[in-house]
Amino acid sequence: MNRSSAPSRLRPLAGAALALGVAVSVAAGASAIAGGATDDAARGPAAAVSRTGPASSVPSPAECTSMRAVAADVAGATSASGTGASVHAARGRAAALARATSSDDVREVAQNLADDLAAYRVALTTASADPGEAREAAGRRADLDVMIRGHVTAMRRLCGH
């Protein structure tokens, strides 16, 4: 059984409405909403607007530019010549992108990248003279490197590459 239809997200509408300061419609629609079971038509068109609005999943052109820059940073930081400082810097850029974006998808992939870069940096900078520990760190770094490359790939896909 499948009773559902496509989700009616109205994300662009929500964003535009809020941008135009149409939040007054929320107050106007409040009495209808209080009934709880009223449909959109009964509440009036503006009442369908979320007070905060679902976020867009689509990255903006500027975010794609930022993601390309982050990807370039990551490529350098995780190369053979990468250092803890360069990984830290790449992580900072990824985290900043995660904080700044309004896209759930961009936020997630940027945050994941930042998280795994943080772990990668630790694995990179806690080199031990003990062969067993060094091997463990290398294995962890290799796994994280695969994850990081996956995040970068996901970023590119978000921007259609």
Partner: peptide, 19 residues
């Protein structure tokens, strides 16, 4: 589903209106 009897304070409405 009783009739809505929502009474929002003016300040709340204004705040919401102004976002």
């Amino acid at each position: 589903h009783a009739r809505p009897r929502r009474r929002r304070g003016l300040a709340t409405c204004v705040a919401a209106a102004l976002g």
